[in-house]
């Protein structure tokens, strides 16, 4: 029996604006399956986004959605969560949206450990504005603003989140669609700030100029480069060179922001 996505999609909005071969559609499908498996009421789910390609995602899903200013996805999500703590709040953003323009919002939300689920769609480039380099563009890669190759070091989003104090950090890829669904589900179930970095492909902005001839070659690159975090424990640093780990990288139980806040001001004993 084929899975029916129609229940969670706004009628008349598809086809989406993403380019041919953009993997955001695969992640959208994984996200819908994950939310469906948790049996949340549609009215209890809030999806916020900033600016960028992935920030068009809330327009297609039939939840409470907010399309906000650049990098301020988490800021609006925090407001929603504080006003109504019963809601399940998901904040979306691209790599540039979350780590460059919204970098401060990102690290301080991690520090507070407020109960929001953050998905960072990492495609290594600013796709919508014309392939400028972002903080996650790998060294040596081509971008329109780095025509001789990227010279700066890049961010590791998951290490950044762990260092800033997020209580659940995971990484997954668009190729591993069922793994992605599992990680999204675990992140939604976790109480406290959960960050899921989802490695995506931008064939138009990044792939064409970086020796990926087709969208499929980018998906197969994810398949070859991803190593499960459990398997990586038994591997040497030489074996892990050029690869990245996927799975739950960090999980801990920590006091959640709204609970400690309510206790401090005397709303809760």
């Amino acid at each position: 029996m084929a899975y029916d996505y129609a229940k969670y999609l706004r009628p008349g909005k598809l086809p989406h604006i993403w380019c041919a071969g953009c993997t955001y559609g695969i992640v959208l499908k994984s996200m819908i399956r994950a939310i469906d498996s948790l049996n949340y009421d549609k009215n209890d789910v809030v999806v916020t986004s900033g600016i960028g390609c992935c920030s068009r995602l809330p327009g297609y899903v039939d939840f409470n959605t907010l399309h906000t200013t650049h990098g301020r996805s988490i800021a609006f999500a925090t407001g929603v969560k504080v006003a109504n703590p019963k809601l399940k709040v998901i904040a979306l953003g691209g790599d540039g949206d979350m780590t460059a323009i919204g970098g401060n919002h990102f690290i301080h939300a991690c520090r507070r450990n407020i109960d929001i689920t953050v998905f960072v769609f990492n495609n290594n480039i600013y796709g919508m504005t014309g392939a400028q380099y972002s903080p996650t563009t790998p060294k040596g890669a081509w971008a329109t603003t780095a025509p001789y190759g990227m010279t700066e070091n890049n961010f590791d989003i998951t290490s950044l989140a762990i260092g800033a104090g997020a209580s659940f950090v995971a990484r997954t890829t668009a190729y591993h669609a069922t793994h992605c669904e599992k990680m999204i589900k675990e992140a939604l179930e976790h109480k406290g700030l959960s960050v899921v970095e989802i490695i995506n492909a931008c064939p138009t902005g990044f792939g064409r100029k970086n020796k990926f001839k087709t969208p499929t070659s980018m998906l197969l690159w994810m398949k070859d480069s991803a190593v499960n975090v459990e398997k990586a424990k038994n591997m040497s640093p030489e074996e892990l060179a050029g690869k990245f780990t996927i799975g739950v990288l960090h999980k801990e139980e920590k006091p959640e922001y709204l609970e400690t806040y309510d206790a401090t001001v005397g709303l809760k004993k």
Binding site: G21, T23, Y24
Partner: peptide, 14 residues
Amino acid sequence: CELRCPDFAIVVYK
């Protein structure tokens, strides 16, 4: 194909 179609365009009925 169905799992990794980004455009919701292909559905396989088993």
